[in-house]
Design a protein around this nucleic acid. Structure first.
Length: 363
DNA sequence: GAGTCGTGGCC
DNA sequence: TGGCCAAGACT
């Protein structure tokens, strides 16, 4: 039987992961949020630090958002951290610090969608639900040789229906995680290791030789490039940083004032306008910027020292909660995205200047 | 339904 | 090396 073969393989080959050493729903929840669109190896050090600092929902709820973001810095998709923090506060206020066990309740919490609600239902609460994520979609698609796009509603419905037919009642936690490990270790997107697969004899795609072509995907549109600018403003030994809006790129993190350029403005003018809009500072640049390269992997090559003067600093800056002056060595103590950390590093070489960031390639 | 949101590893 | 992908959620 398929489930028997799968669970026997899982008993011998399951990955040893910190969140598999516990039945605590909070611990499993944190792992599920961190693992969204993020590889296990990337998550591990973040997870350990986070759980050491916030071992319970109450500990997380009592923290400041800034501290939560600081621990998340570098992990990406920062809305996850803000939503996790908010949800912890809701759980403390409305559920006495404990996650509700039903998917329809979990699904209402910020940052928890269909998948995470089902994963918690299955893994933390032993409920007979299928937690459909990338691995399960691919594995089930191949098992049944489905020629449907798994991301579209019709494909998802069919995957869920067929998956449930092979899930043994009462063992949803093991079964879901076994399929995840199978997808991560054996039934990989490219070059699946069918010779080592414990359920290859049950796999219709393997029988038909179609596993390499599945799951079917529509080609994606090419990604646009967007150009951004940032100002690095010195005052003696201090640097000006601002807190970014919660919505959008690197939301809630601290960084140098700046933004995306629109309408093909020349770079110095765009920078002047963005900084003026954000801070009320007049910036005077005294020579034009050179051409720039195309992705921020080439960031260092694109940086050009650039002399400038700040015409006026206004007192209202000091009163704004989203603006700070920090010493260079303190930059490590506020949550900033990677791009801005690179700017900070570059700044220490040749202050002061205004940096024009090359276009950001969206993914 | 399609865009947006990060980062790192892979070949 | 650049395009693709990874334990998705939200708008």
């Amino acid at each position: 039987m398929l489930s028997h073969d799968l669970l026997a393989w899982y008993a011998d080959h399951r990955r040893d992961l910190p969140w598999r050493h516990t039945n605590d729903p909070y611990s499993i929840w944190v792992s599920e949020i961190m693992l969204q669109q993020t590889r296990v190896d990337t998550v591990l050090p973040y997870y350990k630090r986070f759980m050491a600092r916030f071992p319970t929902a109450a500990a997380l709820a009592n923290a400041t958002q800034e501290e939560v973001l600081k621990l998340w810095e570098g992990l990406g998709y920062y809305a996850r951290a803000r939503n996790l923090h908010r949800a912890a506060q809701i759980i403390v206020d409305r559920f006495d610090g404990h996650l509700p066990p039903l998917e329809r309740e979990l699904d209402r919490l910020p940052g928890i969608g269909r998948y995470t609600a089902d994963a918690l239902g299955a893994i933390a609460f032993d409920r007979d639900v299928l937690a459909l994520e990338g691995n399960l979609r691919r594995v089930i698609t191949r098992l049944f040789d489905l020629h449907l796009d798994p991301r579209l509603p019709e494909g998802e419905r069919e995957i869920r229906r067929l998956g449930l037919t092979v899930m043994p009642p009462g063992r949803a936690s093991e079964f879901n995680q076994a399929l995840m490990d199978l997808g991560a270790l054996i039934c990989t997107p490219r070059a699946p290791a069918c010779a080592e697969c414990p359920i290859a004899t049950h796999c219709i795609a393997h029988h038909n030789g179609t596993q390499e072509q599945l799951p079917f995907r529509k080609p994606r549109r090419p990604l646009p490039l967007r150009q951004s600018v940032a100002a690095v403003l010195h005052e003696n030994e201090r640097l000006l940083i601002t807190r970014r809006p919660e919505a959008g790129l690197l939301g809630g993190l601290w960084g140098f004032p700046g933004g995306f350029i629109t309408n093909g403005e020349s770079n110095p003018l765009a920078l002047s306008r963005v900084v003026k809009d954000q801070l009320g500072l007049e910036i005077v640049v005294d020579r034009p910027m050179p051409a720039l390269s195309h992705t921020y992997t080439h960031f260092r090559a694109a940086l050009q020292p650039f002399t400038c003067r700040v015409r006026s600093t206004s007192r209202h800056l000091r009163e704004r909660g989203d603006v700070r002056w920090v010493k260079v060595e303190e930059l490590d103590n506020v949550p900033m995205g990677k791009l801005d950390r690179m700017l900070a590093t570059e700044l220490e070489r040749s202050p002061p200047w205004i940096a024009i960031a090359p276009p950001i390639e969206r993914r």
